[in-house]
Amino acid sequence: MINTGDIFSTAIKPTWCPGCGNYGIWLALKSALTKLAIPRENIVIVYGVGCHGNMRDWMHVYGVEGLHGRALPVAQGIKLANPNLTVIAVTGDGDCLGEGGNHFIHAAKRNPNITVLVHNNEVYGLTTGQAAPTAQVGMVTKSTPTGVIDPPFTPSSLGIFTGATFAARGFAGDIPHLTDLISQAITHKGFSVVDMLQPCVTFDKIHTYQWYRERVQKVNISEEKLGDRVHSLELASTFGEKIPIGVLHKRDAITSEDREFTLKNGPLTTVPVVDVSALEVLSQFQ
């Protein structure tokens, strides 16, 4: 990879639409990684397939561009092989909650120490604007010409309900705030979900920067209240005239990696291969 002045950028120019919320998210992610001073060789970002996933070509870290919907199990596999790595999943609302919904809830249940950044723009941008699972009722898209009829998910409340130990909501139009949320999510030990509100300037004429600016309200919740799942769920599912943004949930729980006895001796990459002829378990077969 070719170095540039910005250590997390490559020489390739982004191809997102001018004004796309992805630019804000990209900047916030790079700023968070810079702030946390994580060496780039220790970072793995697993991308889903969608507009968000195109970020892979302009991020200088170890990247994995997988299949649509499957970023989270790939990320968990990497983390289990080498828990010393900082593993981030960059996903979209369709990728993470549509195609990958089952993986999302089970990852939350296991609590691996990975961070999931959900690009939430309510549409499938890369396939030119169909409704995502986060699309609000009534929203007209290419796949819902008379408006969305099924009520949406909010990624943060789904995460909190199914076991995520950190959940936050940010806005792509407020980069310093989003930077802080992303760096807190990466720092948190456990499954961290950041729901990132992001205008799609091409396929969504309703949820503009202006629309969000009129509704987002920063919340600052006490440590004690952050661990209260019912309170957190209430905040996370508030989405309408008022949209609370900030850290919504945070609590400590054992991680998926810490439950593995083998990993107590270090990453799998350093665990020696066993001599099968000397295993105790062989006595079962005699």
Partner: peptide
């Protein structure tokens, strides 16, 4: 099984 194979691919990418 989709998670199974993609986890295994992830672990392999991680060096296991």
């Amino acid at each position: 099984e989709i998670a199974g194979i993609t986890m295994a691919i992830g672990a392999s990418l991680g060096g296991a």
